[in-house]
Nucleic acid binder design. Structure first.
Lengths: 246, 246
DNA sequence: CGATACGTTGATCCATTTCAAGATTGGTGG
DNA sequence: CCACCAATCTTGAAATGGATCAACGTATCG
């Protein structure tokens, strides 16, 4: 498959679908995307409570799913290129959380009307769209588990391991690490801790020779130690293989 | 709708679907369930890693979605009667967590083959099945938020408020409280804390005149204080109305 | 009526929060 | 090109929620 054939959607479900999409289906997905838009960092792409009639595919960059509560911002999920960010809104209509860009992003939109038609004519692809929302739920469960039983150190290690693996699925990781524009505040919001404590945790990861996080990039220094620290087992991502970067 | 017409499935999506199911669809859902089984408490209904070819509807009682990690049991979701517990396995096939009964339960099974047929013939109902898995994901996100920003007290209050609301949707709550068989250990596993600390939190809830948890029942003493303590906003449950028990 | 799970309480220790302040970085306009 | 501003990162010290260790009370059920 050449990348240029599907400039907008070529990362969709890449490496994650048990059943690969056919060329025909890839064409259908590419055809779903009508408008494309770019946003700078910290742009609120969608607001909690919005009633939407289209869904958003993340093409480039990172976005967070955010719930504001008690004057604080809580990141409940992160998305990498190729993810349908609010496909669930096709069935739920109303958003229970906001979508915020982290770093510059490019997104594409498809209308629910188009999805409606797809549901009638493309049963296998429809199932794959469902599959992709179920993957989100599986990741949510792993986050819950991680929040319930890991200390801040472990949570950060787990987060890094997960994003590394997911970026690898879509061809955006390298053996030494990956681009990652989150600030320490945003890492804290993702791990349920404070920015101050996250700063110490980040330092500890560096001092222990596990990973370095700086200037928009994560450099993994010791992959095994990272996996160990986060108790990371990628099977919940339902990827092709269950071994990282192998 | 008479309850006795659909003895197994009459609670499915009750009060939660924006579009009500038609009588025909209710009949289809009821017809999905072939086998019915009863289990005693602490029975492992399904094990993480199982490859399954059927899905499980919870008819009576409570089950937990459990991830064991680091020698500890973590509850990542709870289910009430009427919930499809592992509908996601229809698309994912392999389970990323175990299902464990809490108290005596009755479950029904439907084969993926039957669901397959339903996908072809019942587009609206198919969408409602998808909807129900998306609701699970929305609850997961709220749990993540709750774990990220609430102390143990707030987490317990939030849990109680959520279960109360969900049981009310399916007609199993009363204005004074609801049946709830979780031990303090299981409450701790759900809130990411220890049984010892959960014991103190339970006592505090009682001493503050908010709620009492004992002998398999939650008695809510002060609804407003409970909602306040847990920061509970039921909109993520996508119910008919957004007010509890109104 | 003894076994076994469940609930309760106290004392100590540690991870994390909070408050406070300073250093570094990147971007912007003059 | 430099000065400045704002965001980000960093560090220290004090306060605290929750974990851990240890022990004891209390249901419940064969």
């Amino acid at each position: 498959m050449s990348v240029s054939a599907y400039p907008l959607s070529h990362r969709f479900l890449l490496g994650r679908a048990r059943h690969r999409l056919s060329e025909h289906e890839r064409g259908v997905v590419e055809g779903l995307i009508t408008d494309v838009e770019r946003f700078t960092s910290a742009h609120v792409v969608l607001e909690r409570g919005d009633v939407v009639s289209r869904s958003t595919l993340l093409i480039e960059g990172f976005v967070a799913r955010v719930i504001n509560e008690g004057g604080r911002r809580h990141i409940v999920a992160l998305h990498v290129p190729g993810d349908f960010v609010d496909l669930h809104a096709f069935a739920l209509k109303r958003l229970d959380h906001s979508i915020v860009s982290i770093g510059p992003v490019m997104v594409g939109y498809t209308t629910h009307k188009k999805l409606e038609g797809l549901m009638q004519t493309e049963p296998h692809l429809s199932r794959m769209l469902w599959f992709s929302t179920l993957l989100d739920a599986a990741m949510h469960r792993e986050w819950i588990m991680k929040l319930e039983h890991l200390s801040a150190d472990g949570r950060l290690a787990h987060l890094i391991a997960e994003i590394w693996q997911r970026l690898d699925f879509v061809g955006l990781a390298d053996p030494g690490g990956f681009p990652f524009p989150l600030t320490q505040q945003e890492l804290a919001d993702s791990c349920g801790t404070t920015a101050i404590h996250m700063n110490r945790v980040v330092r500890k990861l560096r001092e222990n020779g596990i990973a370095e996080i700086s200037r928009g990039r994560v450099t993994v220094l010791d992959k095994d130690a990272l996996i160990e620290a986060g108790g990371f087992d990628p099977s919940y991502l339902y990827g092709k293989g269950d071994l990282m970067l192998d």
